[in-house]
Design a protein around this nucleic acid. Structure first.
Lengths: 240, 240
DNA sequence: AAGTGGTCTAGACCACGGC
DNA sequence: CCGTGGTCTAGACCACTTC
């Protein structure tokens, strides 16, 4: 008998969803065995290959670990290496109370180098958004974001001081963020930065330049961040 | 008819190997179409599912791109993001002539913090290896490596000034390097570093601490690197 | 319309792990 | 030994892209 369209969702995704639901509900903890291929095949009335396909996908995403002869198990808690997170997301999860102070927001049109970073024509109108990031009561970082004013004009009226920029982009503009290419180097604090960050002039700062890409491959934002080195380190996992 | 053991190699790996051979030989360029699933199945006398499995593996590794209704194509030239490379490997590929100057090599046993980074007992004997890295004729970086003296005693007699440390570990000790966890922050040059690197005291340096893991999950080396910020930036790709 | 990848079946044998 | 994942068959229909 040919496959039956239950609801337009492929069977293997349905199976994955069922397992993911158990994971998120905490009913399955790291190390716990997941239903075997044969069990899943019976439970969901699919063939073995389809159940296998479902588990293979979950393994590729690091959700489960499969051990020949033993079974399939919930993967150990994944350390979030090389994960793109907004400042807000990074800090929640730590006990730090985070806040932002809007330093500057306006439209500029004479920043050809920035426009180039966004893959836009040199004279494009850009939203420039400069924020001081604080953790606890101490300043951590200065972040300057640039976006196309044409595409994101409404941003100027958003609750930028209260909402995460990421969530505004994802919810109000319906775009999904895929990845960021970052350039990290070191610099020293000039008088302006030092005053804002409350550090001595000449102290070490991490400088991170980010191009943030949507799932369509478009560069939606360029961010230049200056981070107090005594409060910030970048973690990377590199593979051979 | 049940599967036939051609040589102990699974059929899907044999197919992958055949395609990879064409890629490496340059007979297939980025964008070129690869044999379709059905063609591969015929050519290699396997079922469609097996040919599919082969292509799925190559896609997971980023070697090919599959487009429904269109075909399977050689993936565009991969930019080596988040790839762990030795200094030697990073620089070859750029026109820079690279060299190293051995500053210090000895066994130490009073570096409990370093030993901890290597997951060794506090008083372990460690090989400490300090090198100045040069590109062209200019100093780029100071790299200090630490390894277990017990496991890698023979290193002291190796051609450290001529051979890549990575290749010594991989060839002489037969261990495969899997990944590195890195901590990146910024600091300023003290008198000693400034003199070695030929920069003013107080200039910005990138500091990178690496724990290098073997495929067995053991930490084989800890590296502390200080990089001239005007000559070095770290590139990362982060995913959402 | 022809060809492609995506999904799926209902079985099979093999190699490995734990008991 | 039994159950597990790993590999594989010989087909099928669907959704999509290209022409």
């Amino acid at each position: 008998m040919p496959q039956v369209r239950n609801n337009g969702l492929p069977a293997y995704k349905r199976i994955q969803g069922a397992i993911l639901k158990l994971l998120e509900a905490g009913q399955l903890k790291p190390g716990d065995p997941v239903d075997s291929e044969r069990e899943l095949a019976k439970i969901h009335s699919v063939s073995l290959m389809t159940a296998r396909h479902a588990l293979a996908g979950l393994e590729r995403d690091g959700k489960v670990v499969r051990r020949r002869g033993a079974g399939t198990f919930v993967a150990p808690p994944k350390i979030h290496f090389n994960k793109l997170m907004s400042y807000t997301e990074q800090m929640s999860g730590r006990g730090l109370k985070i806040s932002s102070k809007l330093l500057f927001v306006n439209v500029i049109d004479t920043a050809p180098e920035i426009a180039a970073r966004l893959a836009l024509p040199a004279a494009s109108h850009l939203i420039k958004l400069e924020r001081l990031r604080l953790g606890g009561d101490e300043p951590f970082a200065i972040e300057t974001c640039y976006l196309s004013a044409h595409d994101f004009g409404g941003l100027m009226r958003a609750r930028l001081d209260r909402m995460s920029l990421f969530s505004i982009l994802e919810h109000d503009y319906g775009l999904r963020i895929a990845h960021a290419d970052e350039e990290v180097d070191a610099t020293t604090a000039d008088a302006h930065s030092a005053r804002l960050l409350g550090t001595p002039q000449g102290s070490a700062l991490l400088r991170i330049r980010q191009q943030i890409f949507s799932t369509q491959g478009k560069i939606v934002m360029y961010v230049l961040g200056l981070y107090r080195s005594d409060r910030h380190t970048v973690l990377i996992r590199r593979f051979r």
